[in-house]
């Protein structure tokens, strides 16, 4: 039962893209955990400092990803390249870059 749903891409850029997406997922996961932790520990300054650190790291990586491969969020999107990549590129459930 082999699956043929994945689109082919250049091996090197594909691996790099996957790595960067994995890093973004990891940092965003830390942010989500700190978010829930802070909801029940709202006066933990150290957790807030950590949140600030990872939030800046995530924003930097999302910017890099958007410049190199395509948009992840509509707040950071390239509108000068003549292509609305938000819609033309694969959607995440296709599993292509994960």
């Amino acid at each position: 039962m082999m699956n043929t749903g994945y689109k082919t891409c250049n091996v090197d850029t594909c691996a790099e893209r996957r790595r960067l997406l994995q890093e973004i997922g990891k940092v965003d996961f830390v942010l989500k955990e700190l978010n829930l932790y802070l909801d029940t520990h709202p006066y933990d300054q150290q957790a807030m400092d950590a949140f600030k650190h990872y939030n800046m790291a995530k924003n930097k990586m999302v910017k890099e990803y958007t410049e190199k491969y395509g948009p992840l969020v509509l707040s950071i999107v390239d509108t000068d390249c003549g292509e609305w990549k938000w819609a033309t590129q694969d959607w995440p459930w296709e599993g292509g870059y994960h």
Partner: peptide
């Protein structure tokens, strides 16, 4: 809400299994 164009954790399954 805003959508982020990625999954919270990677899902990439190569073998179908209905």
């Amino acid at each position: 809400w805003n959508y982020e164009k990625r999954l919270q954790f990677p899902v990439k399954i190569t073998q179908t299994n209905p």
